[in-house]
């Protein structure tokens, strides 16, 4: 059952606002507001989406962005959710896509974005003796190689 992705994205735009662009064959980018995340992913699931490739966290200077790379019939839809730096949190999607558990934990570790409702928000990849509140992939974090002490 082949679904027309552009039509789906058009419907999403109408129902929940946001904007989509087609970068090239099989690559779409969709920007939405974080409050609509659950509804949009739910809608895509009803229309055949089941594979989440990964979740990327990006520090774009002014704000954070959480990118969900979803695969629908071999085509990748990247949902971009901007998050403000003052309040870096958004809802989890593990209730819809259980495979997201490890990816959300990783973004939490390296960027410090909280995923509300995550069933298991433990540290994933940083070592046990890594200080709390230090997020390596934030742009303002620099590593002092000489001393080797993580601040």
């Amino acid at each position: 059952m082949a679904v027309n992705i552009e039509m789906l994205l058009g419907e999403i735009e109408k129902k929940w606002g946001g904007k989509y662009t087609k970068q090239r064959d099989r690559r779409f980018f969709l920007e939405i507001n974080k409050d609509n995340l659950q509804s949009v992913v739910s809608f895509l699931k009803e229309n055949g989406l089941y594979h989440l490739s990964t979740i990327t966290g990006v520090d774009s200077g002014e704000q954070f962005e959480v990118l969900y790379h979803l695969d629908l019939q071999g085509e990748i839809i990247t949902i971009r959710v901007p998050i403000s730096k003052d309040n870096p949190q958004l809802s989890t999607i593990t209730n819809l896509i259980p495979g997201a558990v490890l990816y959300e934990r990783e973004v939490q570790d390296i960027l410090g974005i909280k995923f509300l409702g995550h069933p298991d928000p433990r540290r994933l990849i940083l070592p046990d003796d890594w200080p709390e509140g230090v997020y390596p992939l934030r742009k303002d974090w620099k590593y002092d190689r000489a001393s080797g002490i993580i601040k």
């Binding site: 994933l124 990849i125 070592p127 390596p136 992939l137 590593y143």
Partner: peptide
């Protein structure tokens, strides 16, 4: 428990 091989490549 992961973390033994995390080298910080992305940074």
């Amino acid at each position: 428990r992961l973390g033994y091989n995390h080298r910080g490549i992305e940074k």
